[in-house]
Structure formats: structure tokens, C-alpha cells
Design a protein around this nucleic acid. Structure first.
Lengths: 388, 388
DNA sequence: CTCTCATGGTTTGTATGCTAAACTAAAGAG
DNA sequence: CTCTTTAGTTTAGCATACAAACCATGAGAG
């Protein structure tokens, strides 16, 4: 049943609203909070008192006013606690410690090539426990300590249950990540698809709604954020636009289908475009820094490389146009390894969008995320679910 | 700013919850409402009193209980008021009067071929006013009278502002429908895209979330309902999956793009498939009952016609798989003229979905809507926005 | 047929949390 | 120094939900 309201729930709603406002608009005075939310200033004072009590908010001196008493400025206390974020990729695991504002305090990258051999879930579990322990030991002491850990996984996961259905490449199925990790840690464990994590961190940066994150690396995944919430669909597996058919008789995809977008807009695709142009041997395989190096060559003026990126951009744009037509997002953010070629891709992405989407979607805002987007989004899971 | 809560808002939330429950689960007792919502029975009694006072709910006798006092059964009073729904299509305008439950009380179809000549907005306005007046005069007297009119339009419209951006085929742009009609009627006027209206009526039938409605007629439009709310995107034009590229070098679409889904999954497409198979002359054009007649031939065993429908079904399924992968809907409902060939289409739709979508999306529920889905959804706009 | 008790629904008292308005605090202007 | 403006707190009042006591009703036991 949908949620009922009572005074406790009412206060919770208002408290969240005030918290979010202070979080996003610091420094801000009580009176400004009252005015922008519409809440009575007495109510705001009382809510702020609670937030100060719990140390999530601090008073940071006085602001300006043309006449009369100066406002007391409030700020969200980023150091009230810390979050752990983990990004599990096929070739490495990145772990970060962030403050509550999402700023990275400590970061560790551990190379592990899941594509080389079969990994057992227990083995990955030990790696994760190690990395999380290493990172939490770096956390400064704080009122709330480590509030939680968020884990971004490359595959189909259920955020609600904490179970990973299926991680392709890593070849792990039906793994209860939350159950496994909760045994080791006193704080809550969140898991999500890496595309969703990227979307969450992009939302923190841009606050656009709806926002679509396109995670283009070895494959293509997407995440959708609507009104600040990750959109998960009926079974928690929404956002797999990477397996959208854009060419009915196209390339065979690892999913068994033909003509999936990810066959045309991923690093794998870039590799193929370069092979087609005779720039790489057929035996060549994806290295970790493949796109970075390819982008460097293209930037140095190699016409074949530039064309390969242009082609990739066109196909990225075609898929983005499809999504734009369907969801009419306010903004699309591109992340993943492919962003190393951002400047090379953007013109052809824009062209494809203008040709292939309708009305205002032609001019949808496009941005590129930085390399840490996914792992910061993973850490963000804690803040999004526990505080805001 | 997001919404704040006060006691009035709290009551409104709870009242809506109780209203919806009675609306959907009639007949139901106060105690059952209390138990399923979790609201205190005193609260339920007080809310129900208000609903009875305003005549939206009536007591309809006693239910059963194993021992003790019999429960007083409550029912939503479908005759407390009436809604008008209008479906503007290229060849006709359908107008219905429905009760608050959405049952059609009166229906009128007026053939008007917008494709034959240029229609001015004023001309269409007069038609709509005529039809709405005709239909409202049939409304039985009721406590709340006509609560509103909802208009489904085939094009890009802004639900919030009541302005139609662009109606292709009818060739009307930037028309303030709400402003024009509000002058003539005392009740509120809602407009929406026909796909969204279909989605809304499908949601009433199935209550699945997320739900996608695919409106396949002359073109293909879609509507998305998430948690009972139509998803409209940033500018109110979400749901144009009909212009999703499924073949990058495919047929030219009227939108200027190549390979749009609607070029492969609409009645226009069926016409082309039949021409390709030599079953129709190249000069043949779409008649109003084209698909109905074609389906009849196919059902009578004409192999060429059957294949044409199978091809159409495959392409419908490809687009549906794309949407399913991206949105992971609980259910996809197909509506529009194409549903006259439902039985012929379903097997190939299912096959395409199984091949082209991932995990649970392979088995997403598929249903076909009846012919009145869009116009009932238009009427539903009133109930959805004014009562529930 | 009467008593008991389970079940449905109402009444009453209380707690919570919001708002409005009065009040206090502080600072610039004249 | 006083007035006025702005920020924030205190107080009083109100709406609403909840809990518990209370009333109403009917089936089953005896």
C-alpha cells in the first residue's frame, strides 16, 4: 500500500526538505530556508535545531543584510560522517572514501582482471572486504563515523534485495552481496548497477530532471534519474538501453541479439572501427588505456582515428536520440572510458541528435562526466538513502 | 521547490489514499480500509464521513463477518459526476461521456478528415465545442455535474500549459487549447498526447507500474505511466519512441529521420509490407478500416497477408524490446488500429521480445487495448487530476 | 432465549507538529 | 539615542492522527 501520513512522517518530509536545501545551497540562513521552502520560520528553526543537535548542520558565522540583524549562516557539515564507494570493473576495483558532500578524501585502485580467469563470489567478497577495510581505516573520526558503503557493479543487480542477479564477464550469478558484506561491517551496504551510480553522481552535479547517464566503456549501460530518484523499473533492471536494437540486422552482441547499441557505441566498437580502417591488427584486444591512447592519436591529427571517433560519436548520438525521444530528458551525461575522446565525439553526437530527435530534444544538454563519476555515485548511494 | 507538508496536506494525502482504495476495491468496509492502509480506524471513519458528505462515497448495505457486527460496505459513487473525453484523430473525432468509474455512458463519433484540407484552429475549436456540448447535454443530473473534459491530441502537447505545440497531419501549431475551450465551459479542460491518454486508461485496467502503452495506428506513439502518473519528461514531450531509430539506414520518416520505428510498426508499414508482397497496388492509400480488412483476409488464411502481419509484429516487438530493456516495465499494452490484427501479431511480438530483450523483460506482460482506450483515457484525465 | 464475545465503528482524550503572532535580538540610519 | 528593519525565538492555537475506551451488533454456546 502507498504511504500514509502522520505527524512523524510529515516532520520527516519537511526535515528532508530543509536538509536538502542546506546541503545544496550552503551557506544559507534560517530565514532564507523559510522563504524558499514556504515553511514557517518557527518550523525551520525547530528543524534546524535538531539538525545542529545531530551535528549534520553547523552555524558558520553571519551573513549580510542591508539593515537590521545579520542572518546566522548554516552549512551542511560534510565531516559529520563518511561514505565508502566501490566501483567494480572488469579490470580493476576502485574504492573511495568520501565526506558527506561527496568529496573524495581517499582513493585506492586495485587492478584485478576478472576477464582472465573465473572468479568465485567468495574471492570477490574477500577483495571487497579488504578494500573497504583499508579505506575505512583512513577515515578521520567524526560524529557519525562511516555511514555506509555503496558498491557499483557492472551487471544486473537488485538494489532492494542487495542481490546481484548476473554479472557478465565476471560470470557471477545470484550473489547476495549485501548479505555477504553485512557480516563484516556494522554499517549498511548498498549495491547498484554502475550506470545508476553514474546517473546519481551526475544528478548531484547537474540536478537536472530527468537525467540520463550513458556509461560507455567496454559495453554501454545507462542510468535514469527522475526527480532525484534512480528509476529502477518493475524488477530493478531498468536502464539497459545498451541492448537497444539500432540496426535490426547488425552485429551480434554478447547478449545474443543482433544490432545492439553497445555494439556500435562502446570501446569494443571503437576497436572495430579502427580495425576496419586498417589501423589495428585483427588480433588486437582492448587494453585498459585503449581509448586514451586512441584519442591521443586522433588529437595529434591521424585522420583514420578521427573518423573512427566520429563514427562512434554518430552511433552514440543515435542511441542518445532514441532515449531523448522516449524520455525527453533535461540532460544526458556521457561517462565511462569513452569520455577520453569527448572532444572528438561531441560534434558527431550533436549532429546525430539534431537529425534524429524531435523538437526540444534536438537541443538537449549534453555533458561528459569525469572518470570518478561511477565510484562517487556508489558512495553517493549512502547519502541519498540515509540522509537526503 | 518540492512540496512541504502541513496538517492540511497530510489530510489530503490520506484522503486520496482512502478514496483510491474505495475506488479500486469497492465494496469495502471502513475496517478493511483501516487495515490495508494502516490508518487508524478513527481516522478512516472521519475521512469516509467527509467523502460521504461530498457524495463521492455511498454506503451500500452490509457485508459478512464470521461473528460480531457486520461491516458497512462502502462504494465509490460512480454517478457523483461525469467526465467528457475527446479523441481527436486524423479522420474522426470521438467524444464520450463517462461516469467517474470510467464507464462510457454516451459516445459520439464525428468523421472529419483533417488530411483532406487545411483546418484552422478556430474550425477545430468549433467542432470540439459542438461535440462537447452535445455530449454534456446527455449527462444525467448529479451532485457534481460535469467535472471536466479531457482531450487526446495526436501530436506534441503540453499538459501543464494546455497548449498544443504541434499537431502533424492536422498542421496546427502553438494552439492554446485550454484557453480556447475554457471560454465556453465552466469546468476544467485537460489536454494530453493520445499515447499518454491510452497509457492512463491501460493503467486503470491493469494497475501495472511502470506501464508502457504503444499506440500503433497511422504512426506509432507511446505513453509511459510510472506509479500511476503519466511520465512527461522535461518539456512534456516524453513518449515519442515512435521516432526511435531501429535501422540506421532505414526508411525515411515524415520527421526527417531515417529508420524510425513507426516506419516499421504502423499501419503505413503494414500497407508497405502488403505492397512489397504484390498484394496491393502501389497507388493504394490507407483507408479507415484498412487494418480491419487486412486482418480479416489474413485470418481467412491468405499467406501473404499473414506474413505481412508477422513482419509487422516482429518490428513491433523489436521496438517493444528496446523500450523494455530501457524501462523494465511491468506491462506493455498495445493499442490503436493495429490491434485489429492482435492475434496475428502476438506470436511474432513475443518472439522478438524473447530474442531482443534481456532477463525478465523477455517475459514482460503484453496486452492489447480495446478501441476506446484513448478516448476513455482522455476522460480519465479528469478523474486522475481532480479526484484520485 | 440469554449470555458471551468477536467484530465493526464512534467518541474522547492526548500528542505532535504546523502556523501565526507576539516578542526578543541585533544592527544600520538619522 | 531612538527608530526602523531584519533575523530568529517563544507562545498560543489549531488541525490531524492515534490510542483507548466505548457503543453497536450479531453469531454461537449454553
Amino acid at each position: 500500500m502507498a504511504k500514509t501520513m502522520d505527524s512523524a512522517a510529515m516532520r520527516q518530509v519537511n526535515k528532508k526538505l530543509v536538509t536538502s536545501l542546506i546541503y545544496n545551497q550552503s551557506p544559507i540562513s534560517r530565514i532564507a530556508v523559510s522563504q524558499t521552502t514556504g515553511l514557517n520560520k518557527a518550523t525551520v528553526s525547530s528543524l534546524v535545531d535538531e539538525l545542529i543537535q545531530s551535528e549534520f548542520v553547523v552555524e558558520v558565522g553571519y551573513g549580510r543584510s542591508r539593515r537590521g540583524r545579520k542572518p546566522v549562516m548554516l552549512e551542511f557539515n560534510a565531516e559529520a560522517g563518511y561514505c565508502v564507494g566501490v566501483d567494480v570493473q572488469i579490470t580493476y576495483v576502485t574504492t573511495v572514501l568520501t565526506d558527506l558532500k561527496g568529496d573524495v578524501v581517499f582513493k585506492a585502485v586495485r587492478p584485478i582482471d576478472f576477464s582472465k580467469r573465473q572468479f568465485a563470489a567468495e574471492e570477490l567478497e574477500r577483495v571487497l572486504v579488504d578494500e573497504i577495510e583499508a579505506v575505512t581505516s583512513k577515515a578521520p573520526s567524526s560524529p557519525h563515523g562511516i555511514i555506509g558503503v555503496g558498491i557499483a557493479l557492472p551487471g544486473m543487480v537488485n538494489f532492494e534485495t542487495g542481490v546481484a542477479y548476473y554479472l557478465p564477464n565476471i560470470e557471477i550469478t545470484e550473489w547476495d552481496v549485501r548479505g555477504a558484506l553485512s557480516k563484516h561491517f556494522p554499517f549498511p551496504v548498498f549495491i547498484d548497477n554502475d550506470g545508476n551510480c553514474g546517473a546519481l553522481s551526475a544528478y548531484q552535479t547537474f540536478a537536472s530532471s530527468p537525467l540520463v547517464f550513458v556509461n560507455a566503456g567496454i559495453g554501454v549501460g545507462t542510468g535514469i534519474v527522475i526527480d532525484g530518484e534512480v528509476f529502477r523499473g518493475a524488477n530493478g533492471i531498468a536502464g539497459e538501453f545498451g541492448h537497444m536494437t539500432i540496426s535490426t540486422i547488425g552485429w551480434l552482441c554478447r547478449c545474443g541479439n543482433y544490432g545492439c547499441w553497445e555494439q556500435y557505441a562502446s570501446e569494443q566498437a571503437l576497436l572495430r572501427y579502427l580495425k576496419e580502417r586498417g589501423q589495428l591488427a585483427q588480433s588486437e584486444d582492448l587494453a585498459l588505456d585503449f581509448t586514451t591512447l586512441a584519442a591521443q592519436r586522433a588529437m595529434r591529427g591521424n585522420a583514420q582515428y578521427r573518423e573512427a571517433f566520429a563514427t562512434l560519436g554518430t552511433y552514440l548520438g543515435i542511441g542518445m536520440a532514441n532515449i531523448a525521444n522516449g524520455l525527453n530528458p533535461e540532460r544526458i551525461v556521457v561517462g565511462g572510458q569513452i569520455t577520453h575522446g569527448a572532444e572528438l565525439l561531441l560534434p558527431s553526437i550533436r549532429t546525430a541528435l539534431r537529425h534524429r530527435s524531435i523538437l526540444t530534444n534536438k537541443d538537449v544538454a549534453i555533458d561528459f562526466a569525469d572518470a570518478d563519476a561511477v565510484v562517487r555515485g556508489a558512495a553517493r548511494l549512502c547519502v541519498a538513502n540515509l540522509i537526503l
